[in-house]
């Protein structure tokens, strides 16, 4: 009874959203994502619920690659394939936020319109906002909400900026890197980062000139690894639905191959989660004292380093 007295309208709204998620209503899921994305009230309750109920039974796949490599089109074809075998699919599609206006055009969905009215497919577009490394904080949290919603397959499409969307690999089971013919030479191949996170390489638009050359270049990169760790290379033509079955086979293969290392991966994720939660609390606390310290430093009474040492003991007391 006592608990009821303390309930604000806000907490009952969060309960309502959690109820909707439990009954697998998409309005619940999408409202939860908005709250988490906007750092709104009730965010922690929603995430706690997701952490408690979410399972790792679903398969999570990350797609990354430069703009124009056909990520959205490929995902569209993959959704179609998974739907044919009766799997439900959740998609998180991330597009860049304009650094000038803070606005964003979220254009991934347009390539997946054929699944618009399919109740077994849920697509949500997210703007990167200020995230670096291709995966926004909101994306990561949305992934946990999706897991609690228990889709069979969860797909994350990350920002196609270029060479270092490496973050996504930490949070998904299988990372797919898309390449297309005509995007740089072997030197690009050798660069660290995106090439190293690939569990699977997809050479999309394989009907274009240069596809064989690119396939060979990737093969050379891949051959540096021991045979049982080599990422498969799959040739696809996404808009003609070619190679999609092979890709899905490769995804299943990788998921089974990496199964022995899951626990290690989960440990890493949990440690990241705890760490980032601590940091976000810290950030908020530090912000409380920041203005006052800036003034002091401006008046040259202390240095920024001294200011930081003064803030530290104040944390947790305010």
């Amino acid at each position: 009874m006592k608990e009821h007295l303390n309930r604000t309208p806000e907490t009952s709204r969060i309960d309502e959203i959690i109820g909707l998620i439990k009954s697998r209503n998409i309005r619940g899921l999408t409202k939860a994502i908005s709250i988490v994305e906007n750092d709104g009230e009730g965010k922690e309750d929603l995430l706690n619920d997701a952490f408690t109920r979410g399972s790792n039974a679903c398969i999570t796949i990350g797609f990354t690659g430069a703009p124009g490599t056909g990520k959205s089109t490929l995902i569209n074809a993959i959704i179609r394939q998974y739907r044919q075998i009766g799997k439900t699919v959740g998609v998180i599609a991330v597009d860049p936020t304009s650094t000038f206006s803070g606005g964003a055009v979220l254009g991934d969905r347009i390539r997946m319109q054929e699944h618009n009215t399919d109740p077994g497919v849920f697509i949500r577009s997210l703007a990167s906002r200020k995230a670096l490394g291709g995966l926004s904080e909101a994306t990561k949290f949305a992934l946990y909400l999706y897991k609690a919603f228990a889709f069979d397959v969860i797909i994350v499409e990350t920002l196609g900026v270029g060479q270092d969307e490496i973050d996504v690999a930490k949070y998904v089971d299988v990372t797919v890197v898309l390449l297309v013919p005509g995007y740089g030479d072997n030197i690009q191949m050798a660069k660290a980062g995106i090439m190293e996170i690939a569990d699977i390489f997809v050479i999309n638009k394989s009907d274009r000139p240069g596809a064989d050359l690119l396939t060979n270049q990737v093969l050379n990169t891949v051959h540096m690894k021991p045979e049982n760790e080599r990422p498969p290379i799959v040739n696809t033509i996404a808009d003609k639905d070619e190679g999609i079955k092979n890709l899905i086979e490769a995804i299943t293969l990788i998921r089974n191959r990496t199964a022995p290392h899951w626990e290690e991966k989960y440990r890493q994720r949990i440690s990241e989660e705890i760490r980032s939660s601590v940091f976000s609390h810290l950030n908020r606390e530090v912000n409380h004292h920041l203005d006052e310290m800036i003034e002091e430093v401006l008046r040259s009474s202390i240095t920024p380093i001294e200011a930081s040492k003064r803030i530290l003991p104040m944390i947790g007391t305010s």
Partner: peptide, 8 residues
């Protein structure tokens, strides 16, 4: 977008 909105 230029007004800072997220547009789909």
């Amino acid at each position: 977008r230029d007004e800072g909105m997220e547009v789909i």
